[in-house]
């Protein structure tokens, strides 16, 4: 029984890490892979999602509805931002990074001025359960399931719908896609909206796990970017999944034994080692089977 309990504990930690990385990074990976934009404001998008969820819940909405609201609101916000600023920087990873960095400063500092240094946090729903003497939160299992669902939904969207086909065509070669009749401008707008919405969703989902403030997104930023780097930009879905699993297991293992800070450190070192071996990331390595573009 003890072995099973230990196993469950390990699996739980892994699932938690994997889900965290997957949910934090998916939106970012999509935006990077599709449009060559490095969105440094990603953390702020998550913060906006968290704020929307908190404000919505405080206004009386059920938490799940607040989460959906957060997803939509941040998605729309992202689209507005895309129209006004982001579109100038397509394909320019470095410039977009610096520009979105400026945006992130504006949003976080602006929020600090507007709503103060913190918002009330929400309690974790769904309670907990015990296995082998240890207490676990049901919510975190739910998060893992939601993470999986979101990934599947994204996979379905990009691989099984006409929209997804057009999106992938644009990703492969925007010029040809345009010549074939795809409205690439609108495509970029929508995809950036999707990426933002995912960030808002993740931000809202993790509200019950931590304190809420203007710099809420900061703790997600490093893990999200690390996942993006290791995933590479080539294959969004598979890359995101595999990377989350690999990095999640690494982080989980180290956190289990030595605490979360060492877990983060291990994540960083693992990233540097993986990039050394696979400079195009995990998805780049996979995509190298298909075709090579340099």
């Amino acid at each position: 029984m003890d072995v099973l309990a230990g196993l469950f504990s390990t699996v739980y930690i892994y699932l938690d890490s994997i889900a965290f990385l997957l949910l934090s990074a998916l939106g970012l990976i999509i935006i990077l892979g599709m449009m060559g934009i490095t969105n440094m404001a990603h953390g702020e998008f998550m913060m906006l999602g968290a704020y929307t969820a908190v404000i919505g819940t405080q206004a009386g909405l059920p938490f799940p509805i607040s989460i959906l609201l957060a997803t939509v609101v941040v998605g729309l916000f992202g689209m507005i931002l895309e129209r006004l600023v982001i579109r100038r920087f397509y394909g320019n990873l470095l410039q977009s990074l610096v520009a979105t960095w400026g945006i992130s400063l504006l949003i976080s500092q602006g929020m600090l001025i507007a709503l103060g240094p913190s918002l009330p946090s929400l309690p974790m729903p769904l309670g907990g359960f015990k296995v082998g003497g240890h207490a676990y939160a049901t919510y975190r299992i739910v998060l893992a399931l939601i993470g999986l669902m979101v990934l599947l939904l994204t996979w379905w969207l990009f691989n099984r719908t006409k929209f997804g086909m057009r999106a992938r065509a644009t990703m492969q070669n925007a010029e040809i896609a345009q010549a074939l009749g795809v409205d690439t401008t609108k495509m970029y707008l929508i995809v950036f909206g999707i990426g933002s919405a995912l960030a808002g969703l993740a931000g809202a989902l993790y509200v019950p796990t931590t304190v809420i403030g203007p710099f809420y997104g900061t703790s997600f930023l490093a893990p999200a970017f690390v996942t993006v780097v290791v995933s590479g930009g080539a294959d969004v879905i598979t890359g995101a999944l595999l990377t989350s699993i690999v990095l999640g297991i690494i982080e989980g293992s180290f956190s289990l034994t030595w605490g979360t800070t060492i877990g983060r450190l291990a994540l960083l070192i693992a990233t540097m080692l993986i990039i050394r071996v696979l400079p195009t990331g995990i998805s780049g390595y996979i995509a190298a089977r298909g075709e090579r573009k340099r």
């Binding site: 490095t38 990873l93 470095l94 990074l97 900061t218 930023l221 490093a222 970017f225 690390v226 993006v228 780097v229 800070t261 983060r264 450190l265 994540l267 960083l268 990233t271 540097m272 990039i275 050394r276 400079p279």
Partner: peptide, 23 residues
């Protein structure tokens, strides 16, 4: 020497700074 370039260098240096701060 790992021939990492462009934005990935930026991200890794950023993450390094953040991890060092956390540590």
């Amino acid at each position: 020497y790992g021939r990492v370039s462009g934005v990935y260098v930026t991200i890794i240096t950023l993450v390094s700074t953040l991890v060092f701060e956390t540590f």
